[in-house]
Design a protein around this nucleic acid. Structure first.
Length: 831
RNA sequence: GCCGAGGUGAUGAAAUUGGUAGACAUAGGGGACUUAAAAUCCCCAGGGACGUUAAACUCCCAUGUGGGUUCGAUUCCCACCCUCGGCACCA
């Protein structure tokens, strides 16, 4: 006889029990030699911050856990790994404050995270845990860097970088938000510094184009495209009068090129001094250019309110026949986009404003169709820039046509006449890869006076971080590593002379750019990943023989979920590294992730961001203690659409817990002799279809709702029959795995549920024998009919027209038209 | 300004290709059980109107706003307003 106590739902008891069972059985460890088809689910590995796990982690981890558990039940070999993206500033800053070694802090934090994640019952393969700060891991991060270097994609360049004076660190463009440091909000300064750069721009076209080959949410693709900023147009070459200089200008809106009347050049353009050679007031102009650059810099990245500039005294001889055009220095011209020099006309807002301010002649050639508006454009009163609908007056071949319809022809015309070349430009910049901090992967390069930069030999990898007493970064912009002379001073691998190590470290995006590959073979000390294992997990065994860019698909990851905040950082960087590794023949696929989805943020009660300072952070430990892991999981799946930001509401958790309690009680009432009603049989089969489908679409909220409905109808029956109950438990298992296992055992199964299969709906039992048909009269529902499924249209018509309510609304009129939607409704029109 | 996603009860939300708007849940109201409370179970619940002791019943209005297409629009089309996310002197 069971004691009363064990009859009650007690998550504190059953959750640790099943977590231990799964761990002991190595239930979720993936095999590399499995005969089954593979499926690789990935979540972004967490940064193990001192704050511990938060509600947002739970949301995305649970969603992918649901997918992973469903896939296993469907017969796949599933890889659902976990690890730690543990290099980074917060840990280092904590070390600076407390003097505690970052490695030790990381150890403590990962221990906390591991415990918290395990308490939630995620089906991670813990045997493949990786940590980016582990030398056996970052050895391969360094190796990839050296591969990039060997291929000429890593280079050192003196350049203006974004410098955060508070964090004392150089930032990538992607890490600057509104001219401020993404992390601390401090206004970013510009500094000249020698930095390691990665030539991601060499991959711009493929990063853009190959988005067509992967299944990412449309908004993710849109953001990446936006960031890459592809723009195709024409490149014009123009000789500068009285010099031997030929300048190039890029134009994406070239349709109105006949309107060009002047040229602007960026105030910090490297060509400027040469251009001004021989101009009488050269120094004066250069000084003004410098002043303009500084004013612009001071304004930050915010929009420049007022255009300003200065005439250079030089002219180009326009190749397209607009005569001699003056070259101006203008504050709105960017040295780093296009060629840094632009031909300007009346058909651009800024050009127009600039010309007005400095009385530069304008010559409109593009006009609106309305006569009075046309006059205003002709009189140069307004700027007109509609490159779609605007009507051209020049060149003569295109006069009277719209710019939009002529674009391609004009491009061809200009190229044919030798006036310009086709050109594609990108907004994407090369990736600043150096950080002047301690807690990152050392860049494995050695500088020798004689040999310049020499890579560390592969046999010497990893270059490990030395023990340091002081992690404080310096204002000089040097990494704390620079102070460790015994580490810095080394010998040149090439000439054996004295040399110095690179003291900058890699950005925290380095380790996360390839971690999904290491999960495939996390302990390998010969290569970053065994090609055979990678072939299996890429589903590419048979493809390996034909490494051909066009034929390759995406992988190894089948489904990757993560945050939108990583779309232009991590996601783009890792696609770049993967493509590079593919080109080097190290991976069999050209894209790393077949499918990418994203979760919405979980906000605090009231819709504001959760933050420690506001004290509104939800701690999963406390929730697990009070409600149980299963309730938390179900609640986070049920709370709303997965990809949408949503506010936490502890009241909502009550509903999830109540649902599980009811399922528990229903299961204990199981009666193996009982037969379910035919309606319940149909509902159970429909629920299988609904839940299976919804999980694939990440519509977890409606999947849970469907389970609640099934439970409600199970409860309604006098006796709890086995089939509907087992269906409920199986479908519930991915969401609330502990209670599902426990109930499965309680109703008499000796084989655990995690080894069981996913249910399949019986297609003959998906429909009720009776259905309800709505009857509309003149577009409004006036009656409903309950009819057998097999009923014919004629019978429905006759039945409906015989009803009193229908007769009443027809008011004696003859139906003009009757529309019948089989099984749904009958619409009678009499007006 | 450009790109993307949205706007539905008190609240989170749901609604295959256009086909009975508001499933499911929370909060709320009422009832049962209880000495009582909690828990649990049952019922009600978009707004309004007629009407009635009360209810059933019936009708009208209602998915950001205004138009359109249609027998029928939360869904499709046009215009506009608002919110959120991203980008932005990018030529």
């Amino acid at each position: 006889m069971l004691s009363v106590e064990s009859m009650e739902y007690n998550p504190k008891e059953i959750e640790p029990k099943w977590q231990k069972t799964w761990a002991d059985a190595k239930a979720f460890e993936a095999r590399d030699d499995s005969p089954k088809p593979k499926y690789y689910c990935l979540i972004e590995f967490p940064y193990p911050s001192g704050d511990g796990l938060h509600a947002g982690h739970v949301r995305s981890n649970t969603a992918m856990d649901v997918v992973a558990r469903k896939r296993r039940a469907e017969g796949y070999e599933v890889l659902y790994p976990i690890g730690w993206d543990a290099f980074g500033l917060p840990t280092e800053n904590y070390a600076i404050k407390t003097g505690k070694k970052p490695a030790l802090v990381t150890k403590e934090n990962t221990d906390t995270f591991r415990r918290q994640l395990q308490a939630l019952g995620f089906s991670f393969d813990w045997s493949r845990e990786v940590n980016t700060t582990d030398p056996s891991y970052y050895r391969w991060t360094q190796w990839i860097f050296l591969e990039l270097h060997k291929a000429g994609l890593a280079y050192k360049a003196k350049m203006e970088i974004n410098w955060c004076p508070k964090d004392k660190i150089g930032l990538a463009n992607e890490e600057v938000v509104d001219g401020c440091c993404e992390r601390c909000g401090t206004k970013v300064e510009k500094r000249e510094k020698e930095q390691w750069m990665l030539a991601i721009t060499k991959y711009a076209d493929r990063l853009e184009k190959d988005l067509d080959t992967v299944d990412y949410l449309e908004k993710i693709k849109a953001q990446q495209r936006n960031w890459i900023g592809k723009s195709d147009g024409l490149l014009f070459s123009s000789p500068v009068k009285d010099t031997d200089i030929v300048i190039e200008t890029f134009s994406a809106h070239f349709e109105a090129f006949c309107a060009d009347t002047f040229v602007v050049i960026a105030p910090n353009h490297p060509l400027l001094p040469r251009l001004l050679d021989g101009v009488s007031n050269k120094e004066e102009i250069l000084a003004e250019a410098k002043a303009i650059t500084e004013r612009r810099s001071a304004a930050g990245h915010a929009e420049i309110k007022e255009v300003e500039g200065v005439f250079t005294g030089r002219y180009i001889v326009d190749p397209v026949g607009n005569g001699e055009l003056p070259i101006w220095i203008a504050n709105y011209a960017l040295a780093e986009y296009g060629t840094g020099i632009v031909k300007c006309s009346a058909h651009d807002e800024r050009d127009f404003a600039f010309a007005k301010k400095y009385n530069i002649p304008l010559k409109p050639v593009l006009f609106p169709s309305l006569p009075e508006e046309r006059t205003r454009v002709e009189n140069r009163e307004v700027c007109y820039s509609d490159m779609e609908q605007g009507i051209l007056s020049e060149p003569a071949d295109f006069a009277g046509k719209t710019a939009g319809q002529s674009r391609d022809a004009i491009s061809a015309y200009a190229v044919e006449k030798g006036l310009a070349k086709k050109k594609i430009t990108y907004k994407l910049r090369d990736w600043v890869f150096s950080r002047q901090r301690y807690w990152g992967e050392p860049i494995p390069m050695i500088h020798c006076e004689k040999c310049d930069w020499v890579p560390v030999p592969l046999t010497d990898l990893p270059v490990t971080l030395p023990d340091v007493e002081n992690y404080q970064p310096t204002d000089t912009g040097e990494s704390p590593l620079a102070a460790i002379t015994e580490w810095v001073n080394t010998i040149c691998p090439s000439c054996k002379g004295p040399a110095r190590r690179e003291t900058d470290t890699m950005p925290n995006w380095a380790g996360s750019s390839w971690y999904y590959l290491r999960y495939v073979d996390p302990k390998n000390d010969q290569v970053f990943c065994d090609p055979k294992k990678l072939a299996y997990w890429s589903g590419a065994n048979e493809k390996l023989s034909t490494i051909n860019y066009k034929l390759q698909n995406a992988g190894p990851v089948d489904w990757y979920n993560g945050g939108m905040e990583h779309t232009t950082l991590h996601l783009l960087y890792s696609r770049f590294w993967h493509k590079f590794l593919f080109d080097q023949g190290h991976v069999p696929t050209s894209e790393p992730y077949a499918k990418r989805t994203s979760h919405g943020l979980i906000l605090a009660d009231g819709g504001v961001k959760m933050s420690k300072s506001k004290g509104n952070v939800v701690n999963p430990d406390a929730i697990v203690l009070q409600f149980g892991a299963d309730s938390l999981r179900v609640y986070e799946m049920f709370m709303g659409p997965f990809d949408q930001a949503i506010a936490w509401n502890t009241d909502g958790l009550v509903g999830a817990r109540r649902f599980l309690e009811r399922a528990w009680r229903a299961a204990l009432r199981v009666d193996k002799e009982a037969e379910p009603s035919s309606a319940l049989l149909v509902l159970a089969n429909q629920t299988i279809e609904k839940v299976s489908h919804d999980i694939e679409e990440l519509k977890m909220n409606t999947a849970v709702a469907a389970l609640m409905i099934l439970l409600r109808d199970i409860e309604k029956e006098e006796r709890v029959a086995l089939f509907p109950l087992e269906t409920l438990i199986r479908l519930l298992a991915p969401f609330a795995p502990h209670i599902a296992e426990e109930l499965w055992e309680k109703i008499g199964h000796s084989e655990p549920l995690y080894r069981s299969h996913w249910p399949k709906a019986d297609s003959s039992k998906l429909e009720l024998s009776l259905l309800t048909i709505a009857v509309q009269v003149n577009g409004k529902v006036r009656d409903t009919l309950s009819v057998p499924r097999t009923i014919s249209e004629e019978e429905v018509r006759a039945l409906a027209l015989g009803r009193d309510s229908v007769k009443r609304w027809l008011e004696g009129k003859e139906p003009k038209k009757i529309v019948y939607v089989p099984g749904r409704l009958l619409s009678i029109v009499a007006e």
